[in-house]
């Protein structure tokens, strides 16, 4: 059984595993509801963001807590992958292994939650070590309130202090040994040829990237 550490006794913290549920069709809703219950932000608190649909808000209320748990609550790689499976996101693991610097596993998803895309998590490991989550991110659709809603939700969900850097298109915080940053992508960003994501150079202007990564520099 893979479980994450409970934050408090009255919180629902277990992630339902595939092997524990017979009816595969019910998994998506179960997982969604469980994560939604963990979100520190209620649907009502997001009512000010009128241009974001209820479904898109729900997507954020699932992915952001999942990232928080993966990074700061030590939810392990299998549990993250298992949760993505339960959400019907079809996670795919891509491995790069060599005898010199160990193994890098990248988890991405083939499906998306509405309004979001390009989930990407990088885990490093070697033979005798557990996986270490170095980087995790996703993208949210462009829109007039997109940057604001992600910023607000991340700030609350991660319980973040004053930002380190903030301007109209970018904000970052430090927490423990991590950097959390959110960026609104402009045309130059889309042209940078990310090795993993493909972009429509016009339609995707304004896409929001939310990332948590090791302060490695």
């Amino acid at each position: 059984m893979i479980a994450r550490r409970p934050k408090s006794s009255n919180e629902q913290t277990e992630v339902v595993l595939k092997s524990e549920v017979k009816d595969n069709n019910s998994l998506s809703l179960d997982a969604m509801e469980i994560i939604l219950k963990r979100s520190k932000i209620s649907e009502q608190e997001l009512s000010q963001f009128s241009s974001i649909s209820a479904q898109e808000k729900k997507s954020l209320r699932i992915l952001i807590p999942l990232m928080n748990d993966a990074i700061f609550e030590n939810l392990d790689k299998n549990s993250v992958t298992g949760t993505l499976e339960k959400l019907k996101l079809e996670p795919v693991q891509m491995d790069s292994e060599n005898p010199y610097t160990g193994k890098l596993s990248i988890i991405r998803t083939r499906n998306i939650l509405p309004g979001t895309r390009y989930f990407h998590a990088q885990y490093f490991s070697s033979n005798n070590q557990s996986h270490y989550l170095q980087y995790i991110s996703f993208e949210f659709k462009p829109g007039p309130e997109s940057f604001a809603i992600v910023k607000e939700m991340v700030r609350k969900e991660f319980n973040l202090p004053k930002p380190v850097t903030e301007n109209e298109n970018y904000i970052s915080w430090k927490k423990e040994d991590r950097i959390i940053w959110i960026k609104k992508l402009d045309a130059n960003d889309l042209n940078k040829k990310d090795p993993y994501n493909s972009y429509d150079l016009k339609k995707d202007i304004g896409t929001i990237v939310m990332t948590v990564e090791t302060e490695i520099h």
């Binding site: 060599n98 990248i106 990088q122």
Partner: peptide, 12 residues
């Protein structure tokens, strides 16, 4: 032995 991966602050 390891092609470009995401590193820090949007770099690789």
């Amino acid at each position: 032995i390891r092609p470009l991966y995401r590193f820090y602050g949007g770099t690789y």
